[in-house]
Nucleic acid binder design. Sequence first.
DNA 1: CTGAATCCGTCGAGATACTG
DNA 2: CAGTATCTCGACGGATTCAG
Lengths: 132, 132
Amino acid sequence: MAKTNLKLVEVDYASEGEANCKALGQIFERIGDKWTIMIVGALSRGPMRFNTLQRSIPGLSHKMLTTTLRGLERDGLVTRTAFATIPPRVDYELTEQGRSLHEPLLTLASWARSHQDYIEASRKSFDERAAE
Amino acid sequence: MAKTNLKLVEVDYASEGEANCKALGQIFERIGDKWTIMIVGALSRGPMRFNTLQRSIPGLSHKMLTTTLRGLERDGLVTRTAFATIPPRVDYELTEQGRSLHEPLLTLASWARSHQDYIEASRKSFDERAAE
DNA sequence: CTGAATCCGTCGAGATACTG
DNA sequence: CAGTATCTCGACGGATTCAG
């Protein structure tokens, strides 16, 4: 039953010392951010301008985009390069480290995709059972 | 530069049709939940009682645990079995599908772990630069 | 022990309007 | 076009209390 490659399991999140757990939590907070995943996904195909980025992600507001981008920049996962043209133009691009995040996220996306139907069905049946 | 196994890339989150993007968002909303990751991680080692589970995850409140567990149960990722003993006892256990989630999460945790230092350093230097 | 329900403070996120 | 600032509102999370 998916015993996995045990070599990887040195990590074992949510079990180690509290300090470590807390540190990992910091990271997960960024990754878990609703938009981070989408933005990294979009940028994985190359640098993008602010507006292009926003339009490529439905439902992402102006504000949330800037906020999330700041966070990613702070974490060294994205670089921001501004051109002093007029009108202004700003390109965002994944750093080496940012690109390395893409792969794990793909794994997750792949999981999500392949379990999407199952989950939807589970929810439906659960809700029906709950509505007695 | 980590060209990845391109076989997996059929997914390409955050780029496909809006409908699909929205559906995946539903899933990410669950995964992105601050506690889901931790709980799945804890349960990956076997069934657990409510209280044991809570104590194994620092900072997790009574309420959040029940809420998150309900969600996971609804999604068919966790089963809940109650024993009519006294005092009552309830075991939570990952389903087959729930266990399958563990692997992607490990990948992510592994990434987090190996980039933890880099990110922390980036944040620090960013904050210093910002404090002019 | 498990868990539902209530109250309540806090924070996140949208909308809007304004600079460069 | 890119970004900041302010305001407001609603949702989420914690603490507490009650029930089985």
